[in-house]
Design a protein around this nucleic acid. Structure first.
Lengths: 150, 150
DNA sequence: CGAACTGGTCTTAAAATAGGACTAGACAGG
DNA sequence: CCTGTCTAGTCCTATTTTAAGACCAGTTCG
């Protein structure tokens, strides 16, 4: 009765959830985007059990989202840094953030916000189309399985 | 030792994960975007245990992502339909899909793809900035807690 | 050198999950 | 209008996952 896995699903959404769709992984990644790099930083900031954190970090390293690098402060410890693949998770974290901001706060309730380099709140993620108008859920359809190409 | 909850976190990412960040909810939502509406359709398509599906659907209805509506075929059964809040999950599902497509398939391995109304594969989600250039992770920063406004 | 910090491992109890048996009401056919 | 099947669940059990904290070896600080 092992938890169902989706690693071999044909659907990319299912595979992505298999890789990073548990309760902690995306929060670790969010913290990594905020600049956290050390085991203890993640542990204190998230309040996660250490064994859990060990397991999650290990899986994220295996998946290629994080990598262990020498500590930036010159000490003998290791740090966890986002890889290219990890940085590519940015739209996922932002989309979760924007949905959360829009739907899960009472009016006036304080929450963190995402700013650009100029200190301006950023706009919504958009899915561009040829003619410049953003695509919505109603404009798209999934083709079940792509033909094997190349 | 109840699973840690993030419902009251100040971070919107954490709240979003609390609401829809489990192993099944986003797959149910994905199927709903694909047009599935009935209990049995979700159950057969996902291979999920029925008790699990019952619990997930109930939570998604509570969260306001799905709502129960009369069956579209005129029978006495109910169907689950995406609400506005549910449709707003579209960027999350798309960002997961695009990350999965980019990183979790061997070259040439078949997978489903997202098409626009014209049958063209859609482009990448982008986070627009004032000057038109998309923002990346390096261009943004989180302000920890927004001042209470209004 | 000794104390505290770092980054873990191990153990335990509670909770979540998978899988399947069972069921009440809806529906379709004869 | 009777019966068999379908639908949408509930309930039970075995197993896995999680939370929480005790413990520990190597590193750094004073």
């Amino acid at each position: 009765m092992q938890r169902t896995g989706f690693a071999k699903a044909e659907c990319p959404v299912a595979r992505a959830l298999d890789a990073i769709g548990d309760w902690w992984s995306l929060l670790i990644v969010r913290d990594a985007f905020d600049g956290l790099r050390r085991f203890g930083d993640f542990q204190r900031n998230l309040g996660i059990a250490k064994g859990m954190l060990t397991a999650r970090l290990r899986k994220l390293v295996e998946t290629g989202v994080l990598e262990q690098v020498a500590a930036s402060d010159g000490s003998a410890y290791l740090e966890y840094a986002l890889t290219k693949r990890g940085h590519d998770l940015f739209p996922i974290v932002v989309s979760l953030r924007q949905w959360g901001e829009a739907h899960l706060y009472a009016r006036g309730e304080p929450h963190s916000v995402l700013l650009d380099h100029a200190g301006q709140a950023v706009g919504q993620l958009v899915l561009p189309s040829k003619n410049g108008k953003p695509l919505s859920w109603a404009d798209t359809k999934v083709r079940k399985v792509a033909a094997r190409r190349r």
